[in-house]
Amino acid sequence: MENYALELIQKGTRIDERKFDQYRNIEIKTGVIGPAEGSARVRIGDTEVIVGVKMNTGTPFSDMPNDGTMMVSAEFTPLASPDFESGPPGEDAIELARLVDRSLRESKCIDFSKLVITPGVKVWSVYIDIHIINHQGNLLDAAGLAAVAALWNAYIPKYENEKIVRGEPAGKLPISFKPITITVGKVGNTLLVDPVLEEESIIDAKMSIAIRDDGKICAMQKQGHGTLEFSDVDKMIDIALKKSEELRGLI
């Protein structure tokens, strides 16, 4: 299968006949998980990810007493792929969670100053949990999309007598941007987006680029075993800028 995918790319086509800059069909459903304050279920082709946002109270970091906090975690559940195993998150899950974390944090899409209950003492903590349901390639872009969709769907619950009143919204989560992560892969001299699993295994190297609504880049990470040329990065950013607008329009 992998060799076949490679042969096709060398011939200028793909295993599922998409163009190199074309995503699979994307489906986004929000508000799909009742108990969560925000949620989204995203499918890119067969790849499927659920993100749940839970709002808890916590103490602020000592160097940022007047800001709420955020925590992103990812679980590569063993039901999603024969390659995933039970147990604590491995390095791929940790990397994915940290990449989603950086795209959100660095874009400053959440106004943490509006998540303070008692300055220096009690703040809202936004827990963003990424659950992989089906792994058919390009998990990061799906997870990033689901995280942003879930955050835009999220509310702050009512807080009364030092207690969270679950299920009773007191207001929307203060969010202003939709940072979108686009991963561009390189196979030989071909650059492509949204690789399926068979393509992921033959990719030389890839670059994930998170882009804000104003076209500014807020996070990048080279991934994969191979190397990239400086001119590749130039082209990859152009592709990401174009595709990020398209994906943002879906949320």
């Binding site: 874009s107 807020c218 990048m220 080279k222 040329e229 400086f230």
Partner: peptide, 14 residues
């Protein structure tokens, strides 16, 4: 001149 690591955060234009 092959790139083997690139990690960026913060906000920058292309």
């Amino acid at each position: 001149d092959r790139i083997t690591l690139l990690q960026m955060d913060g906000v920058l234009t292309k």
